[in-house]
Amino acid sequence: MSNVALKTEKMGRVYKLGGRQVQALSDVNLEIEKGDFISIMGPSGSGKTTLLNVLGCLDKPTHGKVLLDGVDITNVAERNLHKTRKHKIGFVFQTFNLMPWLNAVENVELPMEGTGKTKEETRKRAVELLNMVGLSERKEHRPQKLSAGEQQRVAIARALANNPAIVLADEVTGNLDGKTKLEIMKLLGKLNAEQETTIVIVTHDGQVASMAGRILFLSDGKLIAKEKQGTHQNK
């Protein structure tokens, strides 16, 4: 098995907007190796979200290929894409998106539903993940009882539940204050370093982006530069 977690070949995405064609992404060639920690930067409307949607199997490209763990997701039927998302992708959102009626540990257990794990295995894994993100004391709390930083930690633990090939983080620090922002970035860095988790973060915060091992710039749907080569971040 190759060391490539995700690879796109001449990938493009065209939207039809009121009879007009909008080229959101064009000729994106991207290779993310296992254990990479990459940040993607770009101004609003540059196609960051579209790229993340395509990489996260929420959307399909109109051109080219997307190989996730060696499988071309453009060939996967729409109705089966949810399985790919469940097993290969971990999402972390800007607004955390935790289920308000579930406590921390139950939120982490959610993606493991229907994966064939027993209740005990699921609970063990969820507790393990919460310990890993530093929330061992707050397992039984509901999201509204947790701070923003704590909520994002739960969301990160949830993203890791099914041991995904890649974690996609969309402006994960956008709703956090400066101190918490750094803590979350350090946590991601730690997970990347210790667990060899492959992480792609999308951000327009230069400070956040600089904490990743590699920064990609996106402009008008095209990857225009690569910077700071290397697999792991160095801090």
Binding site: R79, N97, L110
Partner: peptide
């Protein structure tokens, strides 16, 4: 709506 989107993103099927 947002919750539905989240559930879908973390792997829940339409049927779920």
């Amino acid at each position: 709506t947002k919750e539905i989107g989240t559930l879908k993103a973390i792997g829940f099927s339409n049927l779920n």
